[in-house]
């Protein structure tokens, strides 16, 4: 067997362990981002007038600066300045989550705004408070419409998670590079890492498509927004 293949096979279990960490980072970040993004989107669409520009400001800030800069800023800067001791892993999840919240909020906002105005009116006409109407009528529909956007966001965060290697998070990229510098089998190992990412992307997109199908409203045609 060629040496390169052996190196890859040898490293494979180690890299797959890394995939697990990658997935935890990605899912953690998406979950955290989701929890932030929903209120952000609702605030931007239905919130008081003074709040809307603040959400826009948040989005502008977190979409305008590179992930790597945020990682350094939080890990080396803010954590030290504020004297909080967070692991690289935690910082990675938080930073990816804060950035993802900016993007996800815009996905949800688009979805909310694409719903017909009558949905909110009908809910109000039944005596629902705006909070109830948003919670029980608007969000269930908007979140369904957001799944394709989510799928996109997943593949972006998955790839971005490789950047957390810069903080030493032991995900796929870090492990690949570590093995590569010791075995000098750079090319085959990077190819393997690339393949793992392709598989993870594919799996995630399949999973979300399955979810989309699963929660699809019968007869309802999703219009684009």
């Amino acid at each position: 067997m060629p040496e390169s293949l052996l190196a890859v096979l040898d490293a494979l279990p180690y890299l797959l362990e890394g995939s697990f960490i990658t997935l935890v980072v990605v899912l953690g970040a998406m979950g955290f981002g989701f929890c932030l993004a929903v209120p952000l989107a609702v605030a931007q669409v239905y919130g008081p007038r003074w709040l809307r520009p603040l959400v826009a400001l948040y989005v502008w800030f977190f979409r305008g600066i590179p992930l790597l800069v945020f990682l350094f800023l939080f890990y080396f800067g803010l954590c030290t300045a504020l004297d909080i001791n967070l692991s690289a892993f935690t910082v990675a999840v938080v930073v990816l989550g804060l950035i993802s919240a900016a993007y996800q909020s815009q996905i949800f906002r688009g979805a909310i705004m694409s719903l017909p105005e009558g949905q909110l009116k009908a809910a109000r006409a039944l005596g629902m408070s705006d909070a109830k109407a948003i919670l029980f009528i608007i969000l269930p529909q908007a979140l369904r419409l957001s799944i394709p956007g989510w799928s996109n966001e997943y593949s972006i965060i998955l790839k971005d998670s490789a950047v957390t290697y810069a903080l030493g998070v032991a995900e796929i990229m870090a492990r690949t590079h570590f093995v590569a510098t010791r075995t000098y089998q750079h090319m085959p190992l990077y190819a393997a890492a690339g393949a793992i990412f392709l598989v993870l992307t594919w799996l995630g997109i399949r999973g979300l498509r399955y979810l989309e199908e699963k929660v699809r409203i019968p007869g309802y045609s999703h219009h684009e927004f």
């Binding site: 593949s155 998955l158 790839k159 971005d160 998670s161 490789a162 950047v163 290697y165 990229m173 690949t176 590079h177 590569a180 000098y184 089998q185 750079h186 090319m187 990077y190 190819a191 890492a193 690339g194 990412f197 392709l198 992307t201 594919w202």
Partner: peptide, 23 residues
């Protein structure tokens, strides 16, 4: 397109910088 959109940019950069010397 599938390859270059699916693989993280950082992996691609490592391929060009650390990987090509392999050849």
């Amino acid at each position: 397109v599938t390859l270059f959109r699916g693989i993280p940019l950082i992996v691609q950069l490592f391929v060009w910088y650390f990987g090509l010397p392999y050849w």
